[in-house]
Simulated assay, not measured.
Amino acid sequence: MALFGFGLETGVGEVDDLLRHAEQADRAGLDLVSLSDHPYFADRLDAYAALGVILGRTSRVTAAVNVTNLPSRPAPMLARTITSLSALSGGRVALGIGAGGLWREIAKLGVEHRTPAEAVRAMSEAITLVKALSGGGAPVTFEGEFYSVDGLVPAAAAAPPVWTGAVGPKSLAVTGKLADGWIPGHAADWLSPRFAESRPVIDQAAVDAGRDPGEIATIYNFPGRITENPLASPRDDDGRWIGGSPEQWAGELVSAVRDHGAAGFIYFPVEDGTSTDSALGRWGNEVVPAVREELARG
Rank of each mutant, 00 (worst) to 15 (best):
N69S: 11
I97K: 00
L85A: 08
R121K: 11
T62V: 11
G52P: 03
S124D: 11
S84L: 12
I82M: 04
T68E: 04
T81I: 14
A75S: 03
G56T: 01
T128H: 03
G90R: 02
A87P: 14
G98V: 05
I54M: 13
V93L: 11
S72Q: 09
S84C: 14
N66P: 04
R92I: 01
A107H: 10
P71E: 07
G101W: 12
W103C: 10
A99P: 01
V93M: 11
P71V: 04
A75Q: 02
R104S: 15
A50L: 06
L102A: 15
L85W: 08
Y48D: 05
A126E: 02
T115D: 07
A94W: 04
G101L: 03
V111M: 07
V61R: 14
V111P: 14
L95S: 02
A47P: 00
Y48G: 04
I127S: 04
E112V: 15
A117S: 13
E125I: 09
R57C: 08
L95I: 03
T62P: 10
A87F: 10
I97F: 00
R114F: 06
G110Y: 10
A79V: 05
E125W: 05
A79T: 07
Y48C: 06
V67Q: 00
A117K: 10
L88W: 13
V65E: 00
A87M: 10
S84D: 14
A49D: 15
A47F: 01
T128M: 03
A119F: 06
A117Q: 09
R80H: 15
V53K: 12
W103A: 12
S86T: 02
A99S: 13
